[in-house]
Design a protein around this nucleic acid. Structure first.
Lengths: 343, 343
DNA sequence: ACCAGCACTTAAAGCGCTTTAATTTGTCCT
DNA sequence: AGGACAAATTAAAGCGCTTTAAGTGCTGGT
């Protein structure tokens, strides 16, 4: 009971100023003030100045909810991220700048261990996002396709079999291929690959390894060890190699953590890297840059992916594009200290 | 020119259904439908069922912008994060669950290298956040105090000198103290500290080191090396130690990356850890858990901090609390493999 | 029969803004 | 002075929802 509202601002704080307050202050209509504040041509220079001043004086800030409702446009791109993944952080950073350049804002929603993709996306829609940029979605293609009916979906970082969606990703097979080329160029022939399990991405990378090995006529040296996306998997794989009678001259892994597991196991066994064995990962995690690892790896080029994602969204929203587009970028080899010519 | 709007949904997609569409479908007013959908008591059970079914059939989803406007309540907590910091990721995860329990939603806004705190906070306010939960804010106390006039501010993870704000943080001095106690308990006396530079947090940790050393009567062994928050700083500090005539038996650092720098430098010099020297970090980063480091460190207890932050916000918003409150939690020692009794 | 009282339901007034059509003001020409 | 035309301004109608006061039917008591 008691009084009506229960939301109180505090200290001497007043209600937030509205357009009407600004208008009253300069003796104009809310329409004019709205025009000025949005930079729409029309109002005279004098009016413009006075309105801007009044708005600043009052600390006026537009209420997004109201303008969204009135204009039927939120100019909002909904971004689903997994906040635990460092690479997503980088993408978000670039998405922000790319979106700003084209006059859109971002609203972020994260999936976590206790909050699934579905919930995250619902939140984005509740905010009236005009398009959905999904970073590393794991939902099946048809679920994504259904979503696309509510708002254009741009899937980033993952291949989507045959749904009519926009996709922005890097060529994972090519990335592993570049690593193989790099190693072969250094003189390696016995190059093993530690797998990443069963996922679209893992499949592509594995294929990239196979293809590249064949291209170099190293069919007989193709050797794939079981693994997944963890450091532990790398360690297991390395132990298996150490048990064998002879070590390969190079080890490629599905991702950086796995490579670090390999590195750790080799170090414990007293095997020098890159002296005796070269090692490379994938993703260019912050991890791989640590000087104690200094891992050769492949970078996914966050900035370019972010730009393409935003462009795709804008084309859908403002340029009537309706046919889905897939943008496949070339990853970039990052040579650091864990690869060298074989002994 | 052309047709009016430029925002097009695609495929066979229709306009998103409104409350009115649901109402029409069951032959009721929008008022009743709104009541049912919000779980307000009143509507009959029969009505309830029919409305729920109709809403589900149409795929109706409430439009937050409209309900916020109409109800004058967004039930939104604005969270400013630095998306690059893994610890923030953990906090966000727990903030989500804590907020959900009390019927609030979260809107995230990140600061990045190219997007400052101010921008991030403006975004949160534009969404009409009712309270602002700022993770690791760096703005000066009076800036935060001003902000607090617009919406209650809860600063997380940082001590704020004497502004009238809510603060939730862990006792950094106590954390380092726990590490010193742990080491002294193992028999160490020569414990050096690698500093974190000039920041509120670094100051607290340094003080914690000094105080704890004195408490153990080790005033003469207090030794603080210059450093910052990076791995490189740890390496530099360790090299300095290696140049001296005798190594200390233990090294404490401002944070985990710095500790990893120390570890790397010691490893290169052939010094065994924890055999010859014990090392410990601070923050319990994902890094420190990697088996190749297995670093003893201090955990900040993300879950508890998140809960307190949400509670503080709710007290301000729904329970008329106006006096600021500071919640200081005890950090938790995490003993792993880099500390042991001295040789 | 009549009305009190209850359980439901709804009409209507906004929320703070945008947008369109209409109005006012100002300028320049004849 | 009068009118045509452009420039500047604004009235008013929503956007999709919530909320309050006002209904509408019932039931049952008398």
């Amino acid at each position: 009971m008691g009084n009506g509202g229960s939301a109180h601002h505090q200290n001497g704080a007043h209600k937030r100023p509205r357009l009407e307050d600004v208008a009253a202050r300069v003796g104009l209509s809310t329409a004019s003030v709205s025009l000025v504040l949005r930079g729409v041509p029309g109002p005279s220079e004098r009016t413009r100045q006075r309105v801007l001043k009044a708005a600043a004086d009052l600390g006026y800030q537009v209420d997004r909810t109201a303008s969204t409702l009135a204009s039927r446009r939120s100019r909002l791109l909904g971004v689903m991220v997994d906040i635990h993944r460092p690479f997503h952080a980088e993408l978000v950073e670039h998405l922000h700048t790319a979106a700003e350049e084209v006059g859109y804002d971002l609203v972020l929603s994260t999936q976590t261990r206790t909050r699934d993709e579905h919930t995250a996306v619902e939140t984005l829609l509740a905010f009236r996002s005009e398009a959905l940029i999904l970073l590393g979605p794991t939902a099946p293609a048809d679920t994504l396709a259904t979503l696309d009916n509510k708002a254009p979906v741009i899937a980033v970082g993952r291949r989507i079999s045959d749904a009519a969606l926009d996709v922005v990703r890097t060529a994972d097979d090519d990335g592993v291929g570049q690593l193989v080329d790099h190693l072969v160029g250094l003189g390696h022939r016995e190059i093993v690959y530690v797998d990443g399990g069963k996922g679209v991405i893992a499949t592509d990378r594995r294929r990239g390894y196979r293809t590249a090995m064949r291209r170099h006529g190293l069919d007989d040296h193709i050797r794939i060890l079981h693994g997944d996306h963890t450091e532990a998997a790398g360690e297991r794989a390395a132990r298996k190699l150490l048990e064998g009678d002879s070590l390969p001259t190079a080890v490629l892994t599905y991702n950086d953590p796995s490579a670090i597991g390999v590195l750790a196991a080799l170090a414990r066994a007293g095997v020098s890297v890159p002296g005796e064995v070269s090692v490379a990962g994938y993703d260019d995690d912050a991890l791989s840059r640590l000087s104690c690892f200094n891992l050769t790896t492949v970078s996914q080029n966050a900035e370019e992916q972010a730009r393409h994602a935003v462009t795709a969204a804008v084309e859908r929203l403002d340029q009537d594009r309706t046919e889905p587009r897939e943008v496949v970028l070339a990853p970039r080899l990052v040579v650091r200290g864990t690869t060298a010519a074989p002994a």
